[in-house]
Amino acid sequence: MLTDALLAFFHFLAIFVLITLMAAEAVALRPDLTPATVRRLSVYDGVYFLSAMAVLATGLLRLFYGAKGADFYLHNPWFHAKMTVFVVIALCSLPPTFAISRWRKQSRKLPDFVPPPSEIRKARRWVMIEAHLVILLPLCAVMMARGIGAR
């Protein structure tokens, strides 16, 4: 019981960190981006990646070592929906990650570098898509946790 509670706690903690960093990226990706913000975005994006890996790792630990067991989840369509949404969000995070990486490399060569507004808008649009998709995860989670749709 304690193991399950701790796994849930660390899973939720990783999720909250991930959402905080997603919001921080969305706020930072503005037309008035400064060279310092480009560097900060790089840090945000790196920690965002680490938090996504922590969400995945703690979720897998809950799947295999949590109180309900893998059978409970693997036969539930909401579990598969949740995993699909998570993967789609991960794929949506790639374009801004690649853009931020390019900007970081440029800023090393040119300390006053700021990306053009069109690139900033494009990266922000992807982050906003992620932010809107993440809303589906708790829906899938509560349906799954209550066994709705399970055989």
Rank of each mutant, 00 (worst) to 15 (best):
D45I: 02
I148M: 14
S107N: 02
G69W: 02
V38P: 04
T97K: 14
I129F: 06
D112N: 14
V17M: 14
G149Y: 10
D71Q: 00
D32S: 13
V114H: 01
V127K: 02
P77F: 06
I19S: 05
L137V: 10
K105A: 13
G66V: 08
A24P: 02
A5F: 11
S101G: 11
M22R: 09
R62M: 01
A70V: 03
K82S: 08
F79H: 07
L137M: 08
R121V: 14
A141N: 09
A52S: 13
E25H: 14
P96L: 07
W78N: 07
I129H: 01
T84G: 12
I129G: 05
V127E: 01
V85P: 02
V88K: 05
A8C: 10
H75A: 04
L21Q: 01
T34C: 07
M1D: 14
A90E: 05
A70W: 10
H11A: 03
T20V: 05
R40C: 09
Q106C: 04
I89F: 01
K122F: 10
S118T: 15
L18Q: 13
V55E: 00
G147H: 06
G46K: 00
L41F: 06
F64M: 13
M83A: 14
L21Y: 02
S42Y: 15
R102A: 04
M53I: 12
W126S: 01
Y73T: 12
Y44G: 02
T97V: 05
V27I: 15
G59I: 03
S93D: 15
P35T: 07
Y48M: 08
L136H: 03
G147P: 01
A23L: 15
G66D: 06
M53N: 08
M143W: 04
F113P: 14
L13K: 04
E25P: 10
M1Y: 10
R125W: 02
L21W: 03
G59H: 00
M53F: 13
R121D: 02
W78L: 03
A54N: 10
V134Y: 06
A141M: 00
K109S: 15
F113M: 15
A8P: 06
K109M: 11
M1V: 10
E130T: 06
H80P: 07
T37I: 15
V88M: 05
L6V: 14
D32I: 11
L133E: 04
P138L: 07
P138R: 09
Y48G: 13
I148P: 08
